[in-house]
């Protein structure tokens, strides 16, 4: 356990350093290709979506979201890059329709890049490999969450709860507190 803690603390200290020292020679990243391609019309749901950029991506900082034409987010999760590519398995059980695959990735030079590709699935959902519920890493947001959905059907005044902002502040504070507690714990053990 202690080794694990030390490793984690080392990581949390080193990761930002590594990020800050990331090579500065590379240019702005952009999407080179996607599978399915932007604008594609598919008879069957894809097995996965792969986005390929013109340079390697930083690990631990990339998210892909699958959005419906009505603004619902059906899937959104962190994805680990394989070189310049990120892949998101297509969730099972999605019906035919227009899909937007939006991304926020971070290039090797630490620059966040956002964008989206869209395609249409005309056929029924293919069974595909079941990825839903296969694992819960505790990091992924609830796939059923719809963070962009309006707070209420009436747009006019004062809707919403402000919860996401509060939640993110809390999560950030909890994270910082966790680091502090760990460092204190570790120091005590050393004594």
């Amino acid at each position: 356990m202690r080794g694990q803690r030390i490793a984690t603390i080392a990581l949390s200290v080193l990761a930002p350093a590594v990020l800050a020292l990331a090579p500065v020679a590379s240019a702005h990243t952009s999407l080179v290709s996607s599978d399915p391609a932007d604008g594609a019309v598919l008879r069957q749901a894809p097995q996965a979506v792969t986005l390929t950029f013109d340079e390697d991506l930083l690990a631990g900082a990339n998210t892909i979201s699958i959005n419906l034409a009505d603004g619902t987010v059906v899937e959104s999760r962190p994805v680990e890059p394989s070189g310049p590519s990120v892949t998101l398995p297509w969730p099972s059980g999605l019906s035919a329709g227009d899909y937007q695959v939006a991304y926020r990735v971070v290039s090797g030079d630490g620059h966040p890049v956002t964008g989206a590709v869209s395609f249409t699935v005309t056929g029924e959902a293919s069974p595909g490999p079941s990825v839903d519920g296969a694992s819960d890493d505790g990091l992924s947001p609830n796939p059923a969450a719809t963070p962009f959905a309006p707070p209420a059907p009436d747009v006019a005044v004062d809707g919403g709860s402000g919860l996401p902002v509060a939640a993110s502040i809390l999560a950030g504070a909890a994270g910082v507190a966790a680091v502090v507690v760990l460092i204190v714990l570790l120091r005590r053990r050393r004594r």
Binding site: R5, T8, L11, S12, A15, P16, L19, A20, A22, P23, V24, A25, S26, A27, H28, G60, A61, V106, D109, G110, H111, P112, G138, L139, A171, G172, A174, G175, V176, A178, V179, V181, L182
Partner: peptide
Amino acid sequence: PLVLALGSLLIAVTPGVAHAH
């Protein structure tokens, strides 16, 4: 908490990274 700590640090640091461009 470890994952949270690491995650929040990454999030906190990412925007401040020196950009090459």
